[in-house]
């Protein structure tokens, strides 16, 4: 007991060290830096909320932060709707289920860099969809969102939904398959239409899964970086910038660690805000 218990603690000690230093230590350091005078290099002089005031006065940050919400809401709603719909369709005893699942899930195995590049080409005015439709005999057809200041952010949603819908489908399908078969039999006996069963009975049963999916997608949105780098590079200008890219650019290329830290802390706060529904559900579960 004594020796073996010691072995377990010994094995876990590097993880404890890494957790304390690399995760929490670094996060605390960044949080502290965001309240200092730091600019090119870390400066430990406390300076209140000045970094945050400057950050929110920076137009590029304003765009990036707003984009996070636009991208987030659309991606969450889009991926959830598409994923859920696909899961329900596949659950209707379709033939070739394996084929459909394979096709819908393969994007998940691809990196966001690859995803971003592929969609960059699909949506590129010169070689993509616009080019194709014009060649079909509609010379005035225009679909150049990726090159438009006020539209580029929406193109990220296409790629994001394409990449994530499969995951939602897989989670939801597992949930649908877990619904007691007797519930379906009972509704058949009572003659309730299928769509009413989904809407009134099955979906409410899947609510915990929906919450999980919303949280997952929201956290992914806050963290997203690679997709925008590959697809639009944050452009045109910085029209499709996101906080993740803002922090990396300011940490390394633009070397303003004070601003980068303040932005990173806002990201961290956003992640925990996105996690709130999950904690709410957990707390309620424990309360009951």
């Amino acid at each position: 007991m004594r020796i073996s218990g010691l072995a377990a603690r010994l094995v876990l000690s590097p993880t404890v060290l890494v957790t304390v230093v690399c995760f929490y230590g670094c996060a605390v350091w960044t949080a502290y830096i965001s309240f200092t005078k730091s600019s090119f290099i870390p400066n430990y002089t406390f300076n209140g909320l000045a970094q945050y005031e400057r950050l929110f006065a920076t137009p590029r940050w304003g765009v990036a932060y707003t984009n996070m919400f636009i991208f987030g809401v659309l991606l969450v709603v889009g991926a959830l709707a598409v994923g859920l719909l696909l899961a329900i369709m596949i659950d209707r005893n379709v033939r070739g289920e394996g084929f459909f699942r394979t096709v819908m899930l393969y994007p998940l195995s691809m990196s966001f860099i690859v995803t971003g590049l592929a969609w960059q080409w699909v949506l590129s005015p010169s070689i993509g969809v616009q080019h194709f439709v014009r060649d079909l005999g509609f010379p005035n057809f225009t679909f150049d969102w990726i090159a438009q200041q006020d539209r580029a952010i929406y193109t990220l949603v296409f790629a994001g939904v394409w990449h994530q819908a499969g995951l939602i489908m897989a989670i939801m399908l597992a949930g649908l398959r877990g619904v007691d078969r007797d519930i379906w039999r009972a509704t058949k006996v009572e003659g309730i239409p299928t769509w009413r069963v989904y809407l009134g009975i099955v979906l409410p049963m899947l609510r915990p899964l929906v919450v999980t999916c919303v949280v997952l997608l929201s956290v992914a949105v806050v963290k997203s970086y690679d997709l925008v780098v590959a697809m639009t590079g944050g452009g045109p200008g910085f029209a499709s910038d996101l906080p993740g890219k803002f922090v990396v650019d300011f940490s390394f290329e633009r070397a303003n660690i004070g601003q980068a830290s303040a932005a990173a802390v806002v990201m961290l706060g956003s992640v925990f805000a996105a996690l709130a529904p999950y904690f709410y559900v957990e707390l309620r579960k424990r309360g009951q």
Binding site: F23, Y24, C26, A27, T30, M267, F272
Partner: peptide
């Protein structure tokens, strides 16, 4: 430790990169 790790997994890389 488990809870700390789970929460740690949610910290965006951007918060940790520079340090």
């Amino acid at each position: 430790l488990l809870t700390a790790l789970m929460l740690g997994a949610f910290i965006p890389y951007q918060v940790i990169l520079y340090p």
